[in-house]
Design a protein around this nucleic acid. Structure first.
Length: 483
RNA sequence: GGCGUCGUGGCCGAGUGGUUAGGCAGGGGCCUGCAAAGCCCCCUACUCCGGUUCGAAUCCGGACGACGCCUCCA
């Protein structure tokens, strides 16, 4: 079986069929950099990272583009409110965004184009739409006439005729549309303070691009007229993606994207996590509370991307323990690998690793079923632990196979790598002190002076270091602050 | 009102016709100077009411409930 996904456009699961054999061109709706992203925003980005990593693991070359929307109503408003230029608002937010990105172990994508650096491409796109007679101009603004684009709203399963009969009809009251359902491509003029922070020349006079336009222009600039995959959150389906389709296909006459993938929301206190409801956590705030990036990443990935995931601090603790179990397993395999070959069950374990790989692939091939993939991984962990517990457990071949399985797992999920980073103590002085204390304790234990031994253990614990005595000596690790 | 998703054991969360999901918590055991950590074992659920079927958490109908979108939104 091949890799397949639920396509919002057709409401069916379809195989991935890149236009170019083995090369997936993917566009991801990125952040509007007006304010720090919250963990709900990062659910989508983390899922997209899983998608990217999985496609690569499956042997595809991936070219992924994720935009940065650095001009829109909110960024302009923030700049005007603070009396500064647009970039003074967007630059620090963008920087913080990529810090969080890095913290969650998200891979860099091939291109991160900024809207403000692609205004000429957007203007060109509007010109093409104009040539095709899909637009009209009014008071220096250009609008897309949805009546002239057959199939408008198909992605959202919307009937154009009934659009806006029940919802908000007012829309953007600063602009005068022929049809309230039309959307603006180019916002003309320099009304109020807007002109001070965001204005470009255009064939229709000074103004700025409308929302939606940057994604169409930049996606086609870097990936061509037809994308293999377009991703985003479900709240982008309408109007954003519907309008992207209208703009792009209106201009090129060709399908804009073959597969439309949408991530469901993170819930907080039973409702969509959002800035407006105030029920959100930023990554920073979670780290301040002592939660670890590996746990956050794991929790975000542990539910299927098309189901709403209720985000709780208790859930984060559970996730931290689950990552710990995997991390311990990896450590066990690596420690065992350094011991003498003693195995007689290599065949079984090599076969276990191979069965795991098959089940893992099957799960993720099926619309990126991460929960299922985690399930089969934990089954492998249990079975392998069981075999390793046996006296004649595993030899070099088996350990290599298991280590390979864990590496494969993490090249897709990326949580063990984060955990390893978290467990690292950078200070050489501190490491030296810990080793010295452990040696002192070992000496005390050798003399069976357990009072002194326990005092040293308590001393280290006080310093945030937990000791673990094992068959091959004493190991130490950092205590999780949420323990 | 229109469109859509969903209701699984203490919690989280897969599964779409018959066979163990999985994680966390909880209980028991092994290991240990004692611990901790780790490992193993146990814990068998599917909102309700009808229907189809030899058999339904899974399909169909209905009820109730939750969440989202309907031009700020990952």
């Amino acid at each position: 079986m091949s890799v397949r996904f639920y396509n919002t456009l057709t409401r069916a699961v379809e195989p991935l069929e890149p236009q170019e054999e083995g090369h997936v061109r993917m566009y991801t709706c990125g952040p509007t950099v007006y304010d720090r992203a919250h963990i709900g925003n990062f659910r989508a980005f983390t899922w997209e990272d899983l998608l990217r990593r999985y496609l690569k693991w499956r042997g595809y070359r991936v070219t992924q583009v994720m935009n940065l929307t650095d001009v829109d109503d909110r960024t302009i408003q923030a700049a005007v409110d603070r009396g500064v230029g647009l970039s003074e608002v967007t630059a620090p937010v963008t920087e913080a965004f990529f810090e969080d990105w890095e913290t969650l172990g998200l891979e860099s994508v091939e291109e991160n184009p900024r809207a403000t650096e692609h205004v000429p491409q957007m203007i060109e796109l509007v010109r093409q739409l104009e040539e095709r007679g899909l637009t009209y101009e009014k008071d220096g603004s250009v609008y897309f006439a949805i009546d002239r684009f057959p199939g408008y709203g198909r992605l959202a399963n919307l009937d154009p005729e009934s659009l806006l009969t029940g919802g908000r009809v007012e829309g953007d009251e600063n602009y005068s549309k022929e049809n309230p359902r039309d959307f603006v491509l180019w916002k003309g003029g320099a009304r109020g303070h807007e002109g001070e922070v965001a204005v470009w020349d255009s064939p229709w006079g000074p103004g700025r691009p409308g929302w939606h336009l940057e994604c169409s222009a930049m996606a086609m600039e870097y990936l061509g007229e037809t994308l293999d995959i377009h991703t985003g959150g479900v709240d982008n389906i309408f109007p954003h993606h519907v309008n992207e389709i209208a703009q792009s296909e209106g201009a090129t006459g060709r399908p804009f994207a073959r597969l439309w993938l949408h991530a469901e929301h993170l819930l907080s206190e039973g409702e969509k996590m959002s800035k407006s409801l105030g029920n959100f956590y930023t990554l920073e705030s979670l780290l301040e509370r002592g939660y670890r990036p590996s746990a956050i990443r794991y929790l975000l990935l542990s539910a299927h991307y098309r189901t709403q995931l209720n985000f709780t601090l208790d859930g984060l603790k559970d996730a931290d323990r689950a990552v710990g179990r995997l991390f311990e397993f990896q450590r066990r395999i690596r420690d065992a690998a350094s011991l003498a070959d003693r195995g007689s069950r290599d065949g079984d374990l090599v076969e276990l690793a191979s069965r795991w790989r098959e089940a893992f692939t099957e799960a993720l091939d099926d619309d990126l079923n991460a929960s299922d993939a985690l399930g089969v991984t934990f089954v492998m962990v249990r079975e392998a632990n069981l075999a390793l517990d046996a006296a004649d457990g595993a030899g070099a071949g088996a350990l290599e196979a298991l280590e390979g399985a864990v590496d494969d797992f993490d090249s897709v999920f990326g949580v063990l790598d984060l955990r390893a980073r978290e467990e690292t103590v950078d200070s050489a002085d501190l490491r030296e002190w810990i080793e010295e204390r452990i040696a002192a304790r070992a000496a005390a234990r050798a003399e069976r002076d357990f009072a002194r031994s326990d005092a040293i253990r308590d001393e280290l614990l006080e310093a945030g270091i937990a000791l673990e005595d094992g068959p091959s000596g004493t190991r130490w690790k950092l205590r999780s602050e949420t323990d």
